[in-house]
């Protein structure tokens, strides 16, 4: 495993109305990005339960991305504010668990921001690659 380049697995929770549509637009516009991200569609970023994120890490995700509508733009009025609150709390929890909080990202992507989505995935992938495999993954494989 040491020789092969580390390919992280990143779980991305995308809201149906903005971030998921932005990811679709990245496709329609043929903006290339690395293959490391696995997108899970939820109706609203406010749907994301902290346990979803913690479970992803528990099962070996190297990074988790939560992407929703821009502040003030939420399809459901204020779901993105709710997830932001949970995000701050989750970062705290992660640091206590010995997982670098930087492995969890929260970003706002509108349905029109295909370019931004692709750039974000490039950025997240590079960042997580630099951090190396998740510490929990090491526990799993040992």
């Amino acid at each position: 495993m040491e020789e092969a380049e580390f390919e992280p697995v990143i779980v991305a929770f995308c809201c149906n109305w903005c971030a998921y549509a932005g990811a679709d637009l990245a496709g329609t516009s043929r903006f290339e990005y690395p293959t490391n991200v696995r997108i899970i569609r939820v109706m609203c970023s406010g749907r994301i339960d902290p346990t979803f994120v913690l479970s992803a890490f528990r099962w070996g995700a190297d990074g988790v991305l939560i992407a929703g509508c821009h502040p003030g733009d939420c399809h459901y009025v204020k779901g993105n504010y709710m997830v932001e609150k949970r995000f701050n709390f989750l970062k705290e929890v992660l640091s206590h668990l010995g997982i670098e909080p930087a492995r969890l990202r929260l970003e706002w992507i509108s349905a029109g921001e295909g370019g931004k989505f692709a750039a974000l995935i490039r950025d997240v992938t590079r960042e997580v690659k630099d951090m190396g495999p998740s510490p929990l993954k090491k526990v799993w494989s040992s």
Binding site: V11, I40, V42, R47, D49, Y76, M82
Partner: peptide, 28 residues
């Protein structure tokens, strides 16, 4: 939107078609 399901401390709220089980299975 499902914000209530994420917030409920007793996990008493199920979102139809976007339930915990359905999402977690995908994550796993």
């Amino acid at each position: 939107c499902g914000a209530c399901a994420a917030e409920c401390p007793r996990r008493a709220i199920t979102m139809r078609h976007f339930g915990d089980q359905q999402i977690l299975a995908q994550v796993q």
